[in-house]
Amino acid sequence: MFNPSLWRFRRYSNAMPELLNLQREMNRLFSSVGQKSPEDYPAINILEKDGAAVVTAELPGIDPEKIDVSVSGEILTIAGSTLQETFAQGETYLRQERGLGNFKRNIQLPFQVNSQAVEARYEKGILMITLPRIKENLPKKIKIK
C-alpha cells in the first residue's frame, strides 16, 4: 500500500524504525483491521558495504536447509517455513505466540545483483545475505583533464 521507497530514509537511519512503526500503525488503521500480511515477514534491515547490499533478517528456529533465498535481477526473494511442534495426543498449546507457517517476501533492490557472488549465512537465528552489484553497473569515476 503506502510502502516507503527503500532508499529514501538513508540520512535518518536512526529514526527509521520509529517512523516505519508509525507508518505501519497508520496503515493498519486505514486498511482492514486484523488482516494477515505475511508478505511483511520477516522484518529486514539493509546495509551497504563496499558497493554491496547486506540484507539481514531475524528468522529464529528455522532449519537452514529450508530457507530459500533466490535472486533474479534486482529482486531478492526469501521464503521458507517455520518448524511445527509435534504433539502427542491430548497435548495442546497453553500459549502460542510463535510460528507463522510459511512465509515469502520479495525485496526490490536498487541495482542489478551479481547472482553468482551472492552469499547467505544463517547464524543464531539471523539470516545475512550479501548481494554484490554487477561490476558493469558500478559507478565509474571520470577523470577531469
Binding site: L6, W7, F9, R10, S13, M16, P17, L20, A43, I44, N45, I46, L47, E48, K49, D50, A53, V54, T56, E58, I126
Partner: peptide, 14 residues
C-alpha cells in the same frame, strides 16, 4: 551485531 564499515540504508527491526 553491527557490521563494520557498513551504513544502514533501511531498517525495519531493531
Amino acid at each position: 551485531g553491527r557490521i563494520k564499515d557498513a551504513t544502514m540504508m533501511y531498517s525495519e527491526y531493531e
